[in-house]
Write a protein that binds this DNA or RNA. Structure first.
Lengths: 237, 237
DNA sequence: CCACTAAATGAATGGTATTCATTTACGAGA
DNA sequence: TCTCGTAAATGAATACCATTCATTTAGTGG
């Protein structure tokens, strides 16, 4: 049985560009071997779309292949494992993090904007956090580009060079942990039947609830982020 | 075929105690129905042992059952899912976190000791972090007990009650993120062929490496933790 | 002594990522 | 124009996985 007609859509988003097609003939569009249905950009885009619609539980190699009108095994001509797909998605998301304030605004404001943006992007993609947190930067060019911009911002803000990486890591650790909080259920701190056995904690939870914040995770994030900004900012020479 | 003889070992560690046996007869040991091979404490202990030996990839319901000399389906008489097993393990680990300094040492020292201990315990169990981070405390009594002790420590250190939970959440977020760092490969920041394209970042990485710290993750953790302690400490009335 | 019930079995189910022998079709070189 | 090499597809097979369920076992309370 012949292969089905090429899948429509999935226009490249630009980032994981395939090596240039070697065709000398000008009639062929560059960037994708003419007979090929799949490439990394298409896989990335399809994976993101699938995650958006079905969540990370719905992201299976079978479902991904189906959304591309292709057999599951075909994916393995372009990625070596499902982990590879997650890595592609992660690197795509890294490009969405807002680093524009570095070099344009004071250090404190730039860090603040970056950190909120970083948290917001990955709070929608918490299953990627274990991936990013231990990901060698070589495998993720867009992520590396983000680090470069942030590092330059720290250097220009008169950070001692040997403290820059540790400071970024500390901020990032806080951001990753905080991304989980955003997705936690509202009643996560309800002690239920144990309430009277835990008076200090229950009192503190009730006292926070009485404040009526619409997004409690934002309060904790702001509190911690401001503490980190002023604490780390003191390292500047 | 009759059931194999009861598995040896797996003495209860105390925490996930089975409801008291209803036997009026004093001859029976309390806590475990006499004919039962399994209970939650035994499952927890076996799971921990399995994780220690084979890692989280080796923690399967089949392997867990085998280590208890039992059929996989037998586990489902005591836990409702594999997630339930993870929850039992998580709650057991929470009891290992050192909260002893609260009420015995100044707030700063107590927080410092608690945070290092918390990070160290869960850096060996990072697959549990997504579980804890969104876990309703009702389902984890030991975890709840930890929160109670910590909350009391904050209250006694003159924290405004409505800021206690947010402060703990901020610290916890940082701790969870930092637990991942401990397990990251040493060359995670090696930019490889992209090194000359990322001069600020590469310079910062080299400058840190030149310091020759044996555990770079500890430097970042200390930096962030001290910033949080002094920033959050300023909230005290 | 009987009946009830908690707790075990083992087979079956539906899902997963991944591998591999085979086929297809494009494009380059003779 | 023909042929050959190769990149990229297929689909069947593999080895797991968690979970369900009808059935059996064996103790306990009445």
């Amino acid at each position: 049985m012949p292969a089905p007609p090429a899948a429509p859509g999935h226009t490249s988003l630009g980032d994981p560009a395939e090596p240039e097609a070697k065709t000398e003939n000008g009639r062929r569009r560059a960037g994708r071997p003419v007979g090929a249905v799949l490439d990394k950009a298409g896989i990335t885009a399809a994976a993101l779309q699938l995650i958006e619609k079905k969540g990370y539980d719905g992201l299976t190699m079978a479902a991904l292949a189906r959304s591309l009108n292709v057999a599951p095994s075909a994916l393995y001509n372009h990625v070596s494992s499902k982990g590879d797909v997650l890595l592609l998605v992660e690197d795509h998301l890294a490009a969405l993090v807002d680093v524009s304030a570095f070099g344009a605004e004071p250090w404190e404001d730039a860090v603040r904007k970056w950190a909120w943006s970083y948290r917001d992007v990955f709070s929608q993609h918490t299953p990627l956090i274990p991936v990013i947190a231990v990901l060698p930067v070589t495998d993720a060019p867009q992520t590396l580009a983000m680090y470069e911009t942030v590092s330059a911002g720290f250097r220009d803000a008169d950070f001692p060079e040997e403290r820059i990486v540790s400071s970024i890591v500390a901020l990032e650790s806080f951001i990753f942990g905080s991304a989980y909080d955003v997705t936690a259920p509202a009643d996560i701190f309800d002690a239920g039947s144990m309430a009277e056995a835990t008076p200090s904690f229950t009192g503190a939870v009730r006292s926070l609830a009485a404040q009526g914040h619409e997004r409690p995770a934002d309060v904790a994030f702001s509190l911690g982020l401001e503490a980190l900004i002023s604490g780390l900012g003191a390292l500047r020479q």
